[in-house]
Design a binder for these strands. Structure first.
Length: 644
RNA sequence: GCCGCCAUAGCUCAGCUGGUAGAGCACCUGAUUUGUAAUCAGGGGGUCGGGGGUUCGAGUCCCUCUGGCGGCACCA
């Protein structure tokens, strides 16, 4: 008997029945066989040492491919688990998947692990690799597996099998030699030696069993694993580089803002940071006005009764900053702007002719966020949303959503960000409204996104309890994802707060609300923007656009004149008249990421010129002052005004 | 909030197993007047995050509080 295997290049070859993928690889070439880590037969994973059960399309998965790294990392997780259990008897294994760039394994153990244990664990892992234990795949029956794991005290494993595996389905167990085994879907390497040593344990963390806060807290050990040492070194280098872009670090270096103990999650904006803020705010004001929004401002603190009416007192109180006055009134700082906007909508009578009514506010909100979630500017307790609410009829939802997506994408693009990854957050487990309502609402959001030319990723169960939403998110320097823009459908709040408009029919109707933000919060957005450009803001956003650096004091008067003229032209200019060499000034202002340094010395003063040097370049561009001002002002023009 | 780690000068960090605090940059003063990524010299500056304990003696060991960092959970 023989089987036919089709290779990715289309070649078809005949092999003996029951041949293993590893034997096929060896048959092709020795070096190939060394680098292969698993196989796929007709797209399905297959262990290298598992005899093929028929012909088909065979793909040999190499260790440095994306799929190959998955396999390596999965094996690294198993080797980690074995090492930990050998070194710390009594530790239970739970779950150990791969993640981006690495893997983790969650353990249950009474005593705490410490990062000091990493060295010892890594050493044992290397010993397991050196031992080159054969990795064997076994197929067990469900009850046998449960009994086995229970007998060796692996309660979590037994529970997982009991709940995850359907009765009758076989269970695959992978073991390293005769020493250690774990429930796993596979595939795995033929032996532990093939893992190699390009791995490293990276961090230790707490994690809840099944991600539920009410469950036991497990100890998670994270690691990274790569095809070879070089890849590992490259990865570590990449992490180091990313850390340099961290907005918290840059915020200090560039003197944008600071935070301190007495105001956790609150930002002290310094002059430069606030300049950035105001520039962004002014831009947003122009864009939203042009998109037909009216700008409003609602109170910072409102009576408890108001929040009771909006439903926040009941649902959101743990997150609210509540205060009492000397006259025993209970008030709360606003955690959201929406109820306030409804009040403006309700003031006087609204007609269907007013719809859609687009209301915007740079709304400063306070939310008591869990201490452990605070993170620089990205997650704070006092923040300003570029908030907005569109009051409209149900039949206007789709068009409003579509044009919002287009507006948001255009704005993100002006800041140099691509926001084509949009998530549609669908109905959560605990929700208000019928299934029919959710079917319709989700379909509307999806259709609106498609009409704007984007295919959203579905975020199952992530919607608000009252309606679905679309989220725009981007990643920060260290790989975390943050939501910037969002648009959320809401039928509930207009109802709770009794918002109405008079329809064509003369009767009263309930409007629908679309909560929306394009930047999310100014704080977070500035954080993301800072990381995106590594602190080197584009000219139109840079807090200081030009530094005029003198060569000797002889040029001071001329430098002052240059500064005056540039400022008159609207440029943000600083003077560097210090008694230092020009090389020093160039270095310092370059490190401060100033986009343009204008060097002036005696020569420039005599000829009414400036020597321009751009950030990142070495060229000196000596041009007339008037010409320089014209060029720089044009470069500093915000993108929307440039288009106008 | 939970788990782990961390906290020394404005910043970045050193300070071995307990013996009484140091570097570079920054800052101040002086000299220097300089042509595109660090001019030289001098000086000031720390109750070693707060509190408690062990010890003859604590930056160093223990407890506790506060804050920061990384995850988890929660979220703009």
């Amino acid at each position: 008997m023989s089987i036919l295997l089709t290779f990715p290049d289309g070649a078809v070859r005949e092999y003996a029945d029951n041949i293993t993928p590893l034997a096929v690889a060896e048959n092709i070439s020795k070096s190939l066989a060394k680098k292969v880590v698993a196989a796929k037969i007709d797209g399905a994973w297959w262990d290298l040492t598992r005899p093929l059960e028929g012909g088909g399309k065979l793909e040999l998965v190499m260790r440095d491919s994306a799929d190959g790294l998955e396999v390596l990392r999965h094996d690294a997780a198993h080797v980690l688990a074995q090492a930990v259990q050998e070194l710390f008897p009594g530790t239970q294994v739970t779950f150990g998947p791969t993640v981006e760039d690495g893997f983790y394994y969650d353990f249950a153990r009474e005593e705490s692990f410490s990062t000091d244990d990493f060295e010892k664990i890594e050493k044992r892992m290397r010993e397991i690799v050196d031992a080159d234990l054969p990795i064997v795949r076994k197929v067990w029956e469900k009850q046998v597996a449960i009994a086995h794991f229970k007998s060796i005290g692996e309660i979590y494993k037994a529970e997982t099998i009991d709940e995850v595996i359907k009765p009758g389905d076989p269970i695959t167990i992978y073991s390293h030699g005769d020493k250690w085994g774990d429930l796993c879907r596979g595939p795995h390497l033929p032996s532990t030696g093939r893992l190699g040593k390009a791995f490293k344990l990276t961090k230790l963390a707490g994690a809840y069993w099944r991600g539920d806060q009410n469950n036991a807290q497990l100890q998670r050990i994270y690691g990274t694993a790569w095809a070879d040492e070089q890849q590992l070194a490259d990865y570590l280098k990449r992490i180091e580089e990313a850390e340099k872009r961290d907005h918290r670090k840059l915020g200090r270096q560039l003197d944008l803002f600071h935070m301190q103990e007495e105001g956790r999650g609150m930002v002290f904006w310094h002059q430069k940071g606030l300049t950035l803020w105001r520039t962004i705010e002014a831009y947003m004001r122009r864009r939203t006005e042009a998109a037909g929004y009216v700008e409003v401002r609602t109170p910072q603190v409102l009576d408890r009764v108001f929040w009771e009416r909006s439903g926040h007192w009941d649902k959101y109180r743990p997150n609210m900053f509540i205060c009492e006055t000397a006259e025993q009134e209970t008030l709360s700082l606003k955690p959201m702007n929406c109820p306030g906007h409804v009040q403006i909508f309700k003031f006087g009578q609204r007609s269907y002719r007013d719809l859609p009514l687009r209301m915007a506010e740079f709304g400063a909100c306070h939310r008591y966020e869990p201490s452990g979630s605070l993170h620089g500017l990205m997650r704070v307790r006092a923040f300003t949303q570029d908030d907005g609410h569109i009051f409209c009829r149900e039949d206007q939802i789709e068009a409003e959503t579509t044009s919002f997506i287009k507006l948001a994408q255009s704005i993100h693009a002006d800041f140099g960000m691509v926001s084509d990854k949009i998530a549609l957050a669908t109905r959560p487990a605990i929700r208000a409204g019928s299934d029919e309502f959710w079917d319709r609402a989700e379909a509307q959001m999806l259709a609106a996104a498609r009409a704007a030319g984007v295919e959203p990723v579905i975020a199952e169960g992530d919607g608000a309890f009252y309606a679905p939403k679309l989220d725009f998110s981007v990643k920060d320097a260290i790989g975390r994802e943050w939501t910037i823009g969002t648009i959320q459908l809401d039928y509930v709040l207009p109802d709770r707060l009794d918002a109405e408009y008079v329809g064509e029919d003369g009767g009263k109707h309930r409007p629908v609300m679309l909560h929306r933000a394009i930047l999310g919060s100014l704080e977070r957005f500035i954080g993301i923007l800072t990381e995106n450009c590594a602190g080197a803001f584009p000219m139109w956003l840079a807090p200081v656009q030009v530094v005029i650096a003198t060569i000797t004091q002889d040029a001071d008067a001329y430098a002052q004149e240059v500064a005056t003229q540039m400022r008159a032209a609207g440029l943000r200019v600083d003077l560097d008249l210090r008694n230092e060499k020009v090389g020093y000034k160039v270095r310092e202002n370059s490190l401060a990421k100033i986009p343009v340094i204008a060097v002036v010395g005696r020569k420039e003063a005599e000829q009414s010129t400036v020597a321009l040097r751009r950030l990142g370049g070495e060229a000196q561009d000596i041009i007339g002052l008037a010409e320089a001002i014209a060029a720089l002002t044009s470069e500093a023009t915000p993108p929307d005004l440039k288009r106008a």
